[in-house]
């Protein structure tokens, strides 16, 4: 079975002067959890943005199911094929926890009638207490917001889950639960989970570990 997403000689620079990523060749498969580690400024988040289609890329550098990502409708790609957990959560502050998750479900499938039920189920799964479901995002703690962001990323059966420091604000106990959740998603639901992290705990549990040093990847 081929890689669900792969990079071919992926290089990237923001200002055409300073190269952030150099000749990255990676393959990611369904059913596995990948960890990308590296120092701050190594290009981890840039790699995630590129894989998420949030940055403009050149042709023939990233392939999703063997299709050049630059040729895809990236809006649809982001709302159907990948779920993203941002380092700073990027939730909508005017919405409640449930509404944030529901919005992603609706974008994926506007006719989904069970969206609220599904959203609440996911929030429970990531450890959000019932009484917080209808709280506005800004009334939740950093850890709770992070879990809502994870619930949102898991809300529409995306093939790939991209998570940027998903356990950064969590206590060790919750961190372990979240890691278990990602492992379950990858192993039981056959999803590809790519985690960018500094956490040793994450490093211990991931199936494949990549190290980014000065824009280059080492295994």
């Amino acid at each position: 079975m081929g890689a669900i997403i792969q990079t071919k000689n992926l290089s990237f620079s923001y200002d055409n002067m300073h190269t952030v990523l150099k000749d990255i060749n990676l393959e990611f498969f369904s059913g596995k959890v990948y960890g990308i580690f590296g120092r701050s400024g190594a290009g981890k988040s840039t790699l995630l943005s590129l894989l998420a289609g949030l940055e403009t890329i050149n042709e023939n550098q990233i392939f999703y199911k063997d299709i050049d990502l630059s040729s895809l409708n990236l809006d649809r790609y982001r709302s159907h094929d990948i779920g993203i957990v941002f380092q700073s959560y990027n939730l909508l502050p005017q919405l409640t926890a449930v509404e944030n998750v529901c919005l992603s479900i609706e974008l994926n499938n506007p006719k989904n009638k069970d969206k609220i039920k599904k959203a609440k189920g996911l929030l429970r799964k990531v450890g959000i207490r019932e009484e917080l479901f209808n709280h506005k995002i800004l009334k939740l703690s950093g850890g709770e917001q992070q879990r809502v962001a994870i619930a949102r990323a898991l809300s529409y059966d995306a093939d790939i889950i991209l998570a940027d420091e998903p356990t950064g604000n969590l206590d060790p106990e919750t961190e372990e639960e979240i890691i278990k959740l990602f492992l379950n998603v990858a192993h039981k639901e056959n999803k590809c989970v790519i985690i960018i992290s500094h956490s040793r705990e994450v490093k211990k549990h991931v199936d494949v570990c990549y190290q980014l040093i000065n824009g280059r990847v080492t295994i």
Binding site: D75, R78, N90, S104, N108, R152
Partner: peptide
């Protein structure tokens, strides 16, 4: 910011 989030989760322009 709101526009950025909506675009990031796949809402079209």
């Amino acid at each position: 910011y709101e526009i950025g989030v909506l675009r990031a989760i796949g809402m079209s322009k």
